[in-house]
Design a protein around this nucleic acid. Structure first.
Lengths: 107, 107
DNA sequence: ATTATATGCAACCATATGGTTGCATGTAAA
DNA sequence: TTTACATGCAACCATATGGTTGCATATAAT
């Protein structure tokens, strides 16, 4: 299963899903029903959100009997740093900064 | 103008907007028309995307005469690291890893 | 003054998204 | 073997999203 960067960004773009990630960061290995307590919506809605997080590989699951346990996976976030965040750190000394200095001179 | 983390994530969730950011990282200070060359859609569509990036503060603009120049702003991405990415680096040694070890023992 | 250029605004449209409800399925407990 | 519990599946719905087209406005060039 190949996870596209697209999937990770879309997964992170929703407030409820970020909230789920936060809750799992507090304590993961929780079941769907346990996680439902944290969100003010139906179980099915939470289930959909978890499926999206799982498709993005931000959450991995383990089914044991009739319950499914959810675990955080930090790898995709690390990939996003490497691909997206780190390169932008190079940008501290480029046109924007030159522009700011230019504007500050004039005021 | 307060920028919500929500705005940044939503802005990053679209492929066309990430492509625009990439193009601006190559060379920023470009006008709307110059950026239109990079995307296969109408000028108005590109304009909307740039407005969303600007609302997320990922792009700042400077109007001079009839043209508007677009510059990258790396600050929101740094904020995302601090709020979202860095905390998850702590998670290398938690339940997920214990689970993996457990599974590897059994196979 | 007229024309061309760069962008903005608004209405419209198809599809995606995030939620609901109802029912089905599989597993544990009595 | 019933009964209860945890989750999955599917249809449906309202709103958000990403695109279009047409027109308006402001500035630069002739």
């Amino acid at each position: 299963m190949r996870v596209m960067s697209q999937d990770v960004f879309k997964a992170l773009a929703d407030e409820s899903r970020r909230h789920l990630l936060d809750k799992l960061r507090e304590r993961d290995g929780r079941s769907l029903n346990e996680l439902c307590v944290e969100l003010d919506m139906s179980r099915q809605a939470v289930s959909k959100h978890l499926a999206i997080l799982e498709a993005a590989n931000l959450v991995v699951t383990l089914a044991r009997g009739r319950t499914k346990y959810h675990y955080l996976n930090p790898i995709p976030l690390q990939d996003i740093i490497d691909r997206w965040i780190a390169p932008y750190r190079q940008h501290q000394t480029t046109a924007l900064m030159a522009l700011k200095r230019e504007l500050e001179k004039k005021t």
